[in-house]
Amino acid sequence: MPVETPVPEIAISLLAHYDVHARRLPWRAAPGANAADPYRVWLSEVMLQQTTVAAVGPYFTRFTHRWPDVAALAASEDADLMAAWAGLGYYARARNLLACARAVVADHGGIFPDTEEALRALPGVGAYTAAAIAAIAFGRRAVVVDANVERVVARLFAIATPLPAARTEIRAAADSITPDVRVGDFAQAMMDLGATICTSRNPACGICPLRDGCAAFRTADPAAFPVKAAKKPRPHRLGHGWWIEDGDGRVWLARRPDKGLLGGMRGLPTSDWSAAPDPTPPVEAVWSRLDAPVDHVFTHFSLALAIHVGRVESGCVPPGPGEWWPLALIEEAGLPTLFRRAADRVMKEEREDARQ
């Protein structure tokens, strides 16, 4: 008979707390079930990458209503999925989502593989996501370390090595406390602890079920962990965007290249985002410029996008892939945040001009 590995004391305490205080989330099984629908686990984990639970909830509900399983998602049109994703950001996730769904259908008969190794072979599935699906959906022992778990473990062991160099040490420490039983619940319990109690600022140590075994709690400043390396300043870039409106009440929405930032999304035609002060517009028109640029912060840089407004005759076709979109239906275009802000600004000014 196989020898059972003792469950670490930390896991026992945390699981007991989770049984009472687990967050009720639409993609989760109840505590003790230790398994959930792999499709819903995978979809939620992709959506939750660098996005809050509160922001993901409505998107997850809409996606699972429209595409209730991986086969339905795999059969969706690229443009439909990208439009449905609009507003969640990090659009490469949406492209990978579709590629992964199609790979599961084409290569695995529509059934998600149940091992970390096989899951990692799927498009867009990295080490964390593979471990999370293996543990939560299939009950396989896996070391699941997201940003919340990273913070919890760094404090439990008072790991003083700065991030990102500390990640190997943190993973080894997480491995040492991961049990062989209820692995899905344990992974989600660690995430909950980091999200609700062991928060980045002002951790609520007084109600933490792991306080007695926490090395950081015994220091004067548990919030000092994990130790972070100094951040590099975020570069600032300038760009130009063109609002091209025709005589039929439509705006030209370009389709951005599949690869690159906001890949595959609809948006305004733009210059390169390190452009000269006065780039050449895509079509001839009488152009005016909004008084202030539209500002947006991406992960690795900030952008000030100057918006130029021009009107052309019906029948004009600007260069490059795109489509004329009715202004009355602009909310249905699935514009990413940057271009949605630009559209809001232009249309607000047009309404104000019409009242004058």
Rank of each mutant, 00 (worst) to 15 (best):
R182W: 10
V183Y: 04
V183G: 09
V183I: 05
G184F: 02
G184Q: 06
G184M: 05
F186R: 11
F186G: 12
A187S: 15
A187H: 12
A187G: 15
Q188K: 04
A189W: 04
M190W: 05
M191N: 11
D192F: 01
D192V: 01
D192C: 07
L193T: 06
L193K: 01
L193E: 07
A195M: 04
A195E: 09
T196K: 02
T196V: 14
T196Y: 07
I197G: 02
I197C: 03
C198S: 13
C198G: 13
T199S: 09
T199I: 02
T199G: 01
S200L: 11
R201S: 13
N202P: 00
N202G: 09
N202V: 07
P203T: 05
A204V: 10
A204K: 15
A204W: 00
C205I: 09
G206Y: 01
G206I: 03
C208Y: 03
C208A: 08
P209G: 10
P209F: 03
L210E: 12
L210N: 13
L210P: 12
R211K: 14
R211T: 13
R211V: 14
R211E: 14
R211C: 02
G213E: 06
G213F: 04
G213I: 09
C214I: 08
A215T: 11
A215I: 04
A216M: 05
A216C: 07
A216N: 06
A216H: 04
A216W: 01
R218D: 15
T219D: 06
T219R: 05
A220C: 08
A220V: 10
A220M: 05
A220N: 13
A220H: 13
P222Y: 00
P222W: 00
A223W: 03
A223M: 10
A223I: 07
A223F: 06
A224I: 04
A224N: 07
A224Y: 01
A224G: 15
F225A: 10
F225L: 04
P226K: 06
V227P: 03
V227H: 03
K228G: 00
K228T: 13
K228Y: 02
K228V: 13
A230R: 11
K232S: 14
K232F: 03
K232E: 14
K232Y: 02
P233G: 09
